[in-house]
């Protein structure tokens, strides 16, 4: 119950993205930047559909209890 307080995760210093063990032989940098580009395209699209005023929207989302 309250036990979770002492057992804070220590995971934040392990960066998942840094550990790509088997780098492909050809042009890893180019591949990585292509992947980043793909994500950036996605983020651009999502920027367009995100509700405006994030802070207020998130604050107003208040639910009553459920199961």
């Amino acid at each position: 119950m309250a036990a979770q307080e002492q057992q804070q995760p220590q995971s934040r210093d392990t960066e998942i993205e840094d550990e790509v063990p088997e780098a492909p032989p050809a042009a890893p940098e180019a591949q990585a930047s292509a992947a980043t580009q793909g994500v950036d395209d996605l983020l651009d699209e999502i920027d367009g559909v995100l509700e405006s005023n994030a802070e207020e929207f998130v604050r107003a989302f208040v639910q009553k209890g459920g199961q």
């Binding site: 119950m1 036990a3 979770q4 057992q7 995760p9 220590q10 995971s11 392990t14 998942i16």
Partner: peptide, 18 residues
């Protein structure tokens, strides 16, 4: 040993190493 604490510790560790 403590299932409820284990459930939460596992959830809080996205590195899956806990």
């Amino acid at each position: 040993h403590e299932p409820v604490a284990a459930l939460q510790e596992i959830s809080h560790d996205t590195s899956l190493s806990t």
